[in-house]
Structure formats: structure tokens, C-alpha cells
């Protein structure tokens, strides 16, 4: 079977247009990050008047970017791992057991996707404060508070996708493990999880990106101790100046690890989606 000429032409057009659309912002980000401040304040040029790496140096001092970076890394990784564990348990229950309340659970969890964040932003903050005052659990202004908030953001999609993935793993496999003397948990860990690896990785990627990019809750829940990159980047426009070149440099630096990580793992993401969400 070979591709027709019309299909090849169609392919060329689609690929070209979409590639340009995708690349333009990336190009602007990369070149503007190498421009002196003067360049980004004047009319746009396709290439810096002088290529400088100064924005990459200055950006660490204009805003304490390194600290925000660490915060984001800690928060996103912890939220991802925690969400993964919680989602695996829940998905296992949903996939392998039939019990009263099962439908109610899945429906409720999925419907939380519909909640407008603004509706529960302030109440959530108040609850956190009350937890602190009554139980001494400090959640506002700590990374822990962000971690538990973010883990629930990726939870619905993760549970749903993993449950789909688990459904696709033959039950005979866990039955066999059970016959061999495994507990249900043993079957989950020894049989189901290894078989669901791509699904687990897909969910982890999704959770990480959700936490890494969140802005609304971060703007309320963070102080300068636990501020994340998402909020921190705004500080480049200050009372006296907008450091566009540094914003672009910082954007580039915060994007690179996530993009590289995602692209390295994309295979598993696609595989996870194929088997889990898209059966």
C-alpha cells in the first residue's frame, strides 16, 4: 500500500503549517532570551542585535528563581508520587471489585473535573487555616499544602485512566497470583502494576505537568517560602521595569526539564493512553 500524491500534498501542508505554528513561540522565546534589554523594549527583530547570555545570568538575581525552582520540583514530584499511590489503590478497587457505592464514587470523582476552581479557592484556604489553628497542621504557606491540593487535581483523570488500564489486564493473572498465595495487595504489586507500567508512567507525567503549571491556587497559597515558578515568573515585571528578556530566559529554563522529560517518556504516555483511556 502506498500513499497517493494527494495524500502526500495534504501531509506536507498539514506538517508545515502546524510546525510553524508550534515553532514560532518557541523561536521567540529562545531568541529573545539572548537579547539585551534594549532589544526587547524596541520593535521586534528576528535576531538579537548582540547575542548576550546576560539574561540567563541576571534572571537568578532579579527574582529568586533557584528557590522557586526547588519549590516547584519538590511540590510537583511529591504531588505526583502521592497522587500515583492514591490513584493506583482507587483504580484497583474500581477495576477489580464490585461494591455498593462504586458508581457513586466514580461519578463524584469525575464530576469534580467540572468544579470551577474559583468556587473552592477561598473555602479551601479557610479550611487549611482552620486545620492549622485546631490541629496544628500547617498547610498554608507550606509545600505540604500545595502537594495535597495538587494531588487531587490530577486524581480524577488518573483514576479513570488507570482503572481503564487495569480493566485491560486479564483477571486470570491476579487469580493465578492469588492461587500462588498472594494477598490482593500482593497481586496488585506483583502482577497488575508491572503489567500496567505504561499506564502508570502516563499518569505520573500527567500529574507532574498539572502540578508544575498550576497558577490560581499557587497565587493564594504561597508565600515567599514556598512560592512556585508559576507565580514567581510574574515577578519579572516589577514596579519599575518589565524584564522581557529575563522572562523569556526564565521561561526557557523552566520549560526545558519538563519538555525533555516529557519527550523522553512520550512513548509510554501514548502507550498508556492507548491502553487505558482509549480502549
Amino acid at each position: 500500500m502506498h500513499d497517493t500524491r494527494a495524500f502526500k500534498a495534504f501531509r506536507a501542508v498539514v506538517v508545515t503549517v502546524l510546525a510553524l505554528f508550534t515553532l514560532l513561540p518557541l523561536y521567540v522565546m529562545a531568541t529573545s532570551a539572548m537579547k539585551p534589554l534594549r532589544d526587547v523594549q524596541g520593535p521586534f527583530t528576528w535576531w538579537p542585535s548582540t547575542v548576550t547570555l546576560e539574561p540567563f545570568v541576571d534572571m537568578w538575581t532579579t527574582v529568586p528563581l533557584a528557590r522557586y525552582f526547588v519549590n516547584s520540583a519538590v511540590v510537583a514530584t511529591s504531588a505526583t508520587l502521592a497522587s500515583l499511590v492514591v490513584a493506583i489503590f482507587a483504580a484497583f478497587a474500581v477495576s477489580r471489585y464490585r461494591f455498593p457505592g462504586r458508581a457513586a464514587f466514580t461519578t463524584t470523582v469525575l464530576s469534580t473535573q467540572m468544579f470551577p476552581g474559583v468556587l473552592f479557592l477561598l473555602p479551601l484556604f479557610i479550611i487549611f487555616v482552620n486545620l492549622d489553628q485546631s490541629a496544628g497542621i500547617q498547610l498554608v504557606g507550606t509545600r505540604a499544602g500545595l502537594v495535597i491540593t495538587y494531588l487531587t487535581f490530577s486524581l480524577p483523570f488518573s483514576i479513570w485512566m488507570l482503572a481503564g488500564y487495569f480493566d485491560g489486564i486479564p483477571r486470570e493473572l491476579d487469580e493465578a497470583a492469588r492461587v500462588d498465595g498472594c494477598s490482593p495487595m500482593g497481586a496488585l504489586v506483583r502482577v497488575v502494576l508491572p503489567a500496567a507500567r505504561p499506564g502508570v508512567i502516563a499518569v505520573a507525567i500527567y500529574g507532574f505537568m498539572t502540578a508544575w503549571g498550576e497558577v490560581l491556587f499557587a497565587s493564594v497559597m504561597t508565600t515567599d517560602v514556598n512560592r512556585t515558578l508559576a507565580v514567581g515568573l510574574r515577578e519579572y515585571s516589577t514596579q519599575t521595569n518589565v524584564y522581557w528578556n529575563e522572562i523569556m530566559a526564565a521561561s526557557l529554563v523552566v520549560s526545558v526539564p519538563v519538555v525533555v522529560g516529557f519527550l523522553l517518556l512520550q512513548r509510554y504516555f501514548v502507550a498508556g493512553l492507548t491502553a487505558g483511556a482509549v480502549k
Partner: peptide, 18 residues
């Protein structure tokens, strides 16, 4: 992914706000 995360998670809750 997991190892640094666990290391970091142990320190995850130490940032106490004023």
C-alpha cells in the same frame, strides 16, 4: 524520578510560613 522525590519529600513540609 522516584529517588530524588523521596529525598525531597522528606524535607517537603519544613517550609514554615511566618
Amino acid at each position: 524520578v522516584a529517588v530524588p522525590a523521596l529525598l525531597l519529600a522528606t524535607s517537603a513540609c519544613s517550609g514554615k510560613s511566618g
